Amino acid sequence: MITVRNVLQTKGTVVWQIGPRATAYDALELMAEKDIGALLVVDGEEIVGIFSERDYARKVILKGRSSKVTSVDELMSAPVFYTEPDKTIEACMALMTARRLRHLPVLEKGHILGMISIGDVVNALITEQKITISDLESYITGGYAYENT
Protein backbone atom coordinates (compact mmCIF):
# COMPACT_ATOMS: atom_id res chain seq x y z
CA MET A 1 0.00 0.00 0.00
CA ILE A 2 1.21 3.47 -0.88
CA THR A 3 1.49 5.80 2.09
CA VAL A 4 1.52 9.57 2.36
CA ARG A 5 5.25 9.34 3.07
CA ASN A 6 5.74 7.63 -0.32
CA VAL A 7 3.85 10.45 -2.04
CA LEU A 8 5.94 13.11 -0.30
CA GLN A 9 9.15 11.33 -1.34
CA THR A 10 8.07 11.70 -4.96
CA LYS A 11 6.36 15.08 -4.74
CA GLY A 12 8.63 16.85 -2.30
CA THR A 13 7.98 18.50 1.02
CA VAL A 14 7.89 22.22 0.26
CA VAL A 15 4.82 23.83 1.82
CA TRP A 16 4.08 27.44 0.99
CA GLN A 17 2.62 29.45 3.85
CA ILE A 18 1.13 32.83 4.51
CA GLY A 19 0.17 34.73 7.64
CA PRO A 20 -3.48 35.23 8.56
CA ARG A 21 -3.30 39.03 8.33
CA ALA A 22 -1.85 39.08 4.81
CA THR A 23 -4.25 40.23 2.11
CA ALA A 24 -5.99 37.86 -0.26
CA TYR A 25 -4.14 39.67 -3.05
CA ASP A 26 -0.77 38.82 -1.47
CA ALA A 27 -1.86 35.19 -1.15
CA LEU A 28 -2.97 35.07 -4.78
CA GLU A 29 0.33 36.58 -5.94
CA LEU A 30 2.29 33.91 -4.06
CA MET A 31 0.04 31.13 -5.36
CA ALA A 32 0.46 32.37 -8.94
CA GLU A 33 4.24 32.71 -8.54
CA LYS A 34 4.56 29.16 -7.16
CA ASP A 35 1.86 27.69 -9.44
CA ILE A 36 -0.07 26.18 -6.54
CA GLY A 37 -3.73 26.07 -5.59
CA ALA A 38 -3.55 26.54 -1.81
CA LEU A 39 -1.47 27.99 1.00
CA LEU A 40 -1.21 26.90 4.59
CA VAL A 41 -2.15 29.79 6.88
CA VAL A 42 0.24 29.88 9.81
CA ASP A 43 0.30 32.23 12.79
CA GLY A 44 3.68 31.82 14.48
CA GLU A 45 4.01 28.05 14.81
CA GLU A 46 0.26 27.35 14.73
CA ILE A 47 -1.63 26.21 11.63
CA VAL A 48 -4.83 28.25 11.66
CA GLY A 49 -6.29 27.57 8.22
CA ILE A 50 -5.87 26.87 4.52
CA PHE A 51 -6.42 29.49 1.84
CA SER A 52 -7.29 28.17 -1.60
CA GLU A 53 -8.43 29.36 -4.99
CA ARG A 54 -11.86 28.03 -4.04
CA ASP A 55 -11.94 30.26 -0.94
CA TYR A 56 -11.09 33.25 -3.10
CA ALA A 57 -13.69 32.49 -5.75
CA ARG A 58 -16.49 31.88 -3.29
CA LYS A 59 -15.72 34.45 -0.60
CA VAL A 60 -14.26 37.39 -2.53
CA ILE A 61 -15.37 37.38 -6.15
CA LEU A 62 -18.92 36.17 -5.58
CA LYS A 63 -19.44 38.52 -2.63
CA GLY A 64 -18.05 41.61 -4.33
CA ARG A 65 -15.18 42.04 -1.88
CA SER A 66 -11.74 43.47 -2.67
CA SER A 67 -8.75 41.15 -2.54
CA LYS A 68 -6.44 44.08 -1.76
CA VAL A 69 -8.12 44.89 1.56
CA THR A 70 -9.58 41.55 2.65
CA SER A 71 -7.31 39.54 4.92
CA VAL A 72 -6.63 35.84 4.53
CA ASP A 73 -8.09 35.04 7.96
CA GLU A 74 -11.47 36.36 6.77
CA LEU A 75 -11.46 33.89 3.88
CA MET A 76 -9.49 30.81 4.92
CA SER A 77 -10.99 27.42 5.57
CA ALA A 78 -10.79 26.27 9.18
CA PRO A 79 -10.48 24.06 11.12
CA VAL A 80 -7.65 22.35 9.28
CA PHE A 81 -7.93 18.63 8.74
CA TYR A 82 -4.59 16.90 8.32
CA THR A 83 -3.02 13.50 7.83
CA GLU A 84 0.10 11.74 9.06
CA PRO A 85 2.91 10.35 6.88
CA ASP A 86 2.19 6.68 7.58
CA LYS A 87 -1.49 6.85 6.62
CA THR A 88 -2.49 5.08 3.45
CA ILE A 89 -3.56 6.94 0.37
CA GLU A 90 -6.93 5.17 0.64
CA ALA A 91 -7.42 6.67 4.12
CA CYS A 92 -6.60 10.13 2.74
CA MET A 93 -9.04 9.66 -0.13
CA ALA A 94 -11.78 8.72 2.36
CA LEU A 95 -11.10 11.80 4.53
CA MET A 96 -10.83 14.16 1.56
CA THR A 97 -14.04 12.83 0.04
CA ALA A 98 -16.01 12.89 3.29
CA ARG A 99 -14.88 16.43 4.17
CA ARG A 100 -14.79 17.73 0.57
CA LEU A 101 -11.12 18.71 0.89
CA ARG A 102 -8.73 19.37 -1.97
CA HIS A 103 -5.59 19.87 0.13
CA LEU A 104 -4.38 18.03 3.19
CA PRO A 105 -1.37 19.06 5.29
CA VAL A 106 0.88 16.26 6.48
CA LEU A 107 1.95 16.54 10.11
CA GLU A 108 4.21 14.37 12.23
CA LYS A 109 4.38 15.11 15.96
CA GLY A 110 3.03 18.59 15.30
CA HIS A 111 5.60 19.43 12.59
CA ILE A 112 4.60 20.18 9.01
CA LEU A 113 6.13 17.63 6.64
CA GLY A 114 4.31 18.61 3.47
CA MET A 115 0.93 18.96 1.85
CA ILE A 116 -0.85 16.65 -0.55
CA SER A 117 -3.62 17.48 -2.98
CA ILE A 118 -6.50 15.42 -4.28
CA GLY A 119 -4.52 15.15 -7.53
CA ASP A 120 -1.58 13.62 -5.67
CA VAL A 121 -3.92 11.10 -4.05
CA VAL A 122 -5.58 10.15 -7.34
CA ASN A 123 -2.19 9.74 -9.06
CA ALA A 124 -0.95 7.52 -6.22
CA LEU A 125 -4.10 5.38 -6.40
CA ILE A 126 -3.69 4.99 -10.17
CA THR A 127 -0.05 3.98 -9.68
CA GLU A 128 -1.03 1.48 -7.01
CA GLN A 129 -3.70 -0.02 -9.27
CA LYS A 130 -1.25 -0.31 -12.19
CA ILE A 131 1.19 -2.18 -9.96
CA THR A 132 -1.57 -4.53 -8.78
CA ILE A 133 -2.70 -5.19 -12.35
CA SER A 134 0.87 -5.85 -13.47
CA ASP A 135 1.45 -8.21 -10.55
CA LEU A 136 -1.77 -10.10 -11.31
CA GLU A 137 -0.93 -10.36 -15.01
CA SER A 138 2.54 -11.68 -14.15
CA TYR A 139 1.07 -14.17 -11.72
CA ILE A 140 -1.52 -15.41 -14.23
CA THR A 141 1.01 -15.79 -17.04
CA GLY A 142 3.66 -17.29 -14.78
CA GLY A 143 6.09 -14.49 -15.48
CA TYR A 144 6.55 -13.43 -11.89
CA ALA A 145 10.12 -12.15 -12.04
CA TYR A 146 10.44 -10.68 -8.56
CA GLU A 147 9.15 -11.23 -5.07
CA ASN A 148 6.47 -8.73 -4.14
CA THR A 149 6.62 -7.82 -0.45
Rank of each mutant, 00 (worst) to 15 (best):
E74H: 03
I133P: 04
D43G: 02
M93Q: 07
G12T: 05
D120P: 11
E137M: 05
A145S: 11
I112T: 13
Y25K: 14
T88L: 10
K11H: 09
E33Y: 10
G142E: 12
I126H: 03
I126P: 03
T83K: 05
E33S: 10
V15W: 10
T13Q: 08
I2Y: 12
D35A: 01
T23V: 11
L101V: 03
L28Y: 03
R100Y: 01
L125G: 00
R99D: 03
G49T: 06
D43V: 02
Y82A: 07
R99H: 06
L75R: 11
D35E: 14
T88Y: 13
S138N: 14
V42P: 08
P105C: 00
R5T: 05
T83D: 02
G143W: 06
G19E: 14
L136N: 08
V80C: 03
L107D: 03
D43K: 14
R99Y: 04
A27N: 07
V41E: 07
A22M: 07
S138V: 00
A91G: 01
A22T: 02
G142C: 05
Q17T: 11
S77G: 09
L125C: 01
I61W: 15
Y144C: 02
G110V: 06
R102K: 07
V106M: 10
I18S: 07
E128M: 09
M1T: 10
T88W: 13
S71N: 11
Q129M: 09
G64N: 13
D135N: 12
S77L: 01
D86F: 06
E147F: 08
A38T: 07
V48E: 08
D73P: 07
A91D: 15
S77K: 07
A98S: 14
L28N: 12
K34D: 12
I126C: 00
S71V: 11
L75M: 14
E29L: 13
V42C: 01
E74S: 04
E147S: 05
S52G: 12
R58G: 13
K63M: 14
L113A: 04
T132L: 10
G49R: 10
M76T: 09
A98E: 15
W16N: 09
V121P: 08
G143F: 00
F51H: 04
F51C: 03
F81P: 02
P20V: 04
V4G: 07
V121W: 03
C92I: 01
A27I: 05
P85V: 01
I89P: 11
L104F: 08
G12S: 05
I126T: 06
D35K: 11
V72D: 09
E90S: 06
G37I: 04
L95E: 11
H103P: 06
Y146S: 12
V72A: 02
A24N: 11
D55M: 09
Y139K: 14
T132Q: 09
E137P: 03
E45W: 10
V14M: 01
Y144R: 15
I36R: 07
G49W: 02
A38E: 09
M115Q: 09
Y56F: 12
T141K: 15
D73A: 04
I61D: 13
N6E: 15
G37K: 11
T3M: 02
G64Q: 14
C92K: 05
I131K: 12
R99S: 05
T127K: 13
D43Q: 13
